[in-house]
C-alpha cells in the first residue's frame, strides 16, 4: 500500500506514467475526465466556463479542508468535528468583518483560532492519549452547541466591501481555486519531501518503527492537528467570503463530505498511506458528480443513492488495482 510513496523515483518516464495511471490519483483523474467527457457529450453546457467555475469555486473549501483531514488520517487519527469547526470559524470571520476591524484580521484571525482550537484537540489526543474519535465527537458537540447558544442562528449581513476574498478572480480564476491548487501542491510536496512530512506517514503506518527511528509520536500528532486547524481556518475563510451572508450555523454533513473526499482520495483510514493530491481530486470528483446529476436529469430522489454507489465504485477500482499489483509482484 505504501508502495506509491516509498518507490524510488528513478524509473523511466513510461513506467512512471503507467504507475501514475494505476495509482489512486490516476484512477480519480481518469474518472473525472470520463465524467466530464460523458456528461459534456450529453449536455455541452456542463463544460461551459461558468459551470466549471461553479463546480470548483463552490467546493474548493472542501478540498482545502480535506488537505488537513488527509494529514490527520494519515497520522492514524480522525476528526469528525471539522464541519462544526468550520462553522465556528466562519462565524468568527464574519463577526470580525462587521465589527469594523481591518479586513486582514477577518481573514487571518479565524486561521489562528482554528489552530488554537485544533491544538486543544491535538493536545488531548497526542499527549493525554484520548482516542481521536472520542475527542472530536466531543468537540463536535461542544463547538456546535456553543455556536448556536452564542449566535442563536442570527445571520451575518452587511459584510463590508472587499471582504469577499473567495470571489476575487486573479487571472480570471476564482481565488478559492488558487488556494486549492497552491495549498494542495505545497502540502503534497511538503508531505513527500520534508522530514516532518514523512514522519507523519511513519507515525500512522507503524508507530513502533517510527519510535525506533527516533520520531516523537506525540509531538508529530500534535503538530498535525495544529496544521489541520490551519487548513480548516483557510477553508472557513473561503466558505465565509463566498456569499454575501454568513449563515452562522454548522453546514449539514460537512464533516462527512470532507472525510469522504480524503478516503476516496486514497487516504487509508488505517493510517500510513495516501496523498493530498488524491483528496483534492476526490473533492473535485464528488463536486462534479453532484453537478452532473442535475445535468443528466437524474431524479433528485436518487441523488444520494448514486453518490453512495460512486464512492463504492471508486474504492472498488482502487482495490482491484492493488490486488493486481500485488499479484504481479
Amino acid at each position: 500500500m505504501a508502495a506509491t510513496m516509498a518507490l524510488p523515483a528513478r524509473a523511466s518516464a513510461g513506467s512512471r506514467l503507467r504507475r501514475f495511471l494505476f495509482s489512486q490519483e490516476g484512477i480519480l483523474l481518469i474518472a473525472i475526465i470520463v465524467l466530464f467527457v460523458a456528461v459534456g457529450a450529453y449536455n455541452q453546457r456542463f463544460l461551459s466556463a461558468n459551470n466549471l467555475s461553479t463546480i470548483f469555486l463552490g467546493n474548493a473549501y472542501i478540498a482545502v479542508a480535506a488537505i488537513g483531514m488527509s494529514m490527520v488520517i494519515v497520522s492514524g487519527n480522525i476528526d469528525v468535528s471539522v464541519g462544526s469547526l468550520i462553522g465556528v470559524l466562519a462565524t468568527i470571520s464574519g463577526t470580525i468583518a462587521v465589527s469594523g476591524w481591518p479586513l486582514w484580521l477577518a481573514w487571518t484571525l479565524p486561521i489562528l483560532a482554528g489552530m488554537a482550537i485544533s491544538a486543544v484537540s491535538g493536545w488531548l489526543i497526542a499527549y493525554l492519549r484520548v482516542p481521536s474519535i472520542v475527542v472530536t465527537l466531543g468537540m463536535l458537540s461542544i463547538l456546535k452547541g456553543g455556536l448556536i447558544s452564542v449566535t442563536a442562528g442570527a445571520w451575518i449581513n452587511n459584510l463590508p466591501q472587499g471582504y469577499h476574498l473567495a470571489q476575487l478572480r486573479p487571472l480570471g480564476v476564482p481565488m478559492a481555486v488558487w488556494f486549492m491548487i497552491v495549498l494542495t501542491a505545497l502540502a503534497a510536496f511538503w508531505m513527500r519531501y520534508s522530514g516532518f512530512g514523512r514522519s507523519i506517514y511513519a507515525v500512522g503506518g507503524n508507530a513502533e518503527a517510527a519510535r525506533l527511528a527516533g520520531i516523537d509520536r506525540a509531538r508529530t500528532v500534535f503538530i498535525v492537528f495544529v496544521i489541520h486547524g490551519f487548513f480548516a481556518g483557510i477553508a472557513a475563510v473561503l466558505f465565509a467570503t463566498q456569499l454575501s451572508v454568513i449563515q452562522s450555523t454548522v453546514p449539514p454533513n460537512l464533516e462527512l463530505t470532507v472525510i469522504t473526499a480524503s478516503v476516496v482520495g486514497g487516504v487509508s483510514i488505517l493510517g500510513g498511506t495516501g496523498t493530498v493530491i488524491g483528496s483534492t481530486l476526490a473533492a473535485i470528483l464528488i463536486a462534479a458528480i453532484g453537478s452532473s446529476l442535475v445535468f443528466i436529469n437524474v431524479s433528485p430522489y436518487w441523488l444520494r443513492a448514486v453518490q453512495g454507489l460512486l464512492i463504492l465504485l471508486t474504492v472498488l477500482a482502487d482495490l482491484a488495482r492493488r490486488r493486481k499489483r500485488a499479484r504481479h509482484r
Binding site: 461551459s48 459551470n51 461553479t54 456569499l243 453546514p251 453532484g290 442535475v294
Partner: peptide, 13 residues
C-alpha cells in the same frame, strides 16, 4: 453554499 451551488448549476444547465 449548497443552495448557491444548486442555483448556479441550474443557471449553467
Amino acid at each position: 453554499i449548497l443552495s448557491f451551488n444548486q442555483a448556479s448549476t441550474l443557471i449553467n444547465k
